[in-house]
Computed example of a mutant assay.
Amino acid sequence: MTLLARLIGTVCFVGYMKPAPGTWGSLVALPIGFVIYQVGGFWLFCAAIIVAFFKGWWATAQMTKGLENHDPSEIVVDEVVGQWIAIAPVFFAATRLDIDVTLLWPGWLAAFLLFRAFDIFKPWLVGWADRRDDALGVMLDDVIAGIFAAISVLILAAFFHLVIM
């Protein structure tokens, strides 16, 4: 395995932090995503998700080559991609409304907690992807968890803004 694969897969060694490396990976995704969003806006952030997915797929394949464990806990690039998908509706809303994205902090919190819940409990399609036992499955389970979390964030935002306010 190359150092580059390890750097990408562990997100610069964040994946070695204990306990709960997946949670650390999800946490580090937020400031990195924020910086990307601040530098280039929503569409650069979306491009970063796609690039990170493919680089993560490659790194995961390299790091798991020849191993029985298809999803070692130190690989957290999948959490970064999933967390970015989960937070994307918040960044989109900030862009659309032309407001400071930090004002939408409840969305940040919801995206983080919902993504972690879907990633940990692996309902339905998340579990299906995880059972693939390959590098693509490692990435896809978090992509699907991120999509579920993003949809949930949208539902919660709609409920809050349409029903409560």
Rank of each mutant, 00 (worst) to 15 (best):
T102D: 07
L97Y: 10
A29C: 06
T95I: 00
S26W: 04
P72H: 09
V39K: 13
V77E: 06
V80R: 05
M17I: 15
L103E: 12
P19N: 05
F53E: 01
V90C: 03
I32G: 10
I36T: 06
W57Y: 12
R116T: 07
N69K: 15
N69T: 00
F45V: 11
L7Q: 12
A110W: 09
A94L: 06
L67S: 14
D71P: 02
R6D: 14
D78Y: 08
V80Y: 03
D71W: 00
N69W: 00
L113V: 10
V11Y: 15
W105N: 00
V35D: 05
I99P: 08
W58L: 08
I32Q: 08
D100S: 10
K122L: 07
H70K: 12
I99T: 15
V77Y: 06
I87W: 13
A52P: 04
W57P: 07
Y37I: 04
A94S: 10
F91V: 07
I99N: 09
M63E: 13
A117W: 14
L113E: 08
Y16V: 07
L104M: 02
L97D: 14
W57D: 03
V101Q: 08
A48W: 04
D119F: 03
D119T: 06
A111H: 06
G41K: 09
P72W: 03
T23C: 03
V14C: 11
F34E: 10
W124E: 10
L97F: 12
F42H: 14
L4Q: 09
A117V: 10
V39Q: 11
W124N: 13
W84Y: 02
A5Q: 00
M63W: 03
F121C: 08
Y37V: 05
F34A: 15
I49G: 10
S73R: 13
G66L: 09
D100A: 13
G33D: 00
G56S: 01
V35W: 11
G25T: 05
G22K: 07
I32A: 15
I8R: 03
G40M: 11
W105Q: 04
G33P: 02
I32H: 07
W58E: 06
L27D: 05
L109D: 00
W105S: 01
I87S: 14
T2E: 12
I32D: 10
P123V: 05
W105D: 03
F92A: 15
D71A: 11
A48R: 04
F91S: 04
F45L: 15
K122A: 06
W84Q: 06
E68M: 12
F92S: 11
A47P: 01
V51Q: 05
I85D: 09
F45R: 10
F54Y: 02
I36P: 08
L30C: 08
D78F: 01
E68V: 12
N69Q: 09
W43S: 14
W43A: 12
D119W: 07
C12Q: 07
I120E: 09
L4R: 11
P31Q: 07
A110M: 13
G25F: 06
D100N: 15
W108M: 06
T64L: 08
D100I: 01
W108D: 05
I32S: 02
A93N: 09
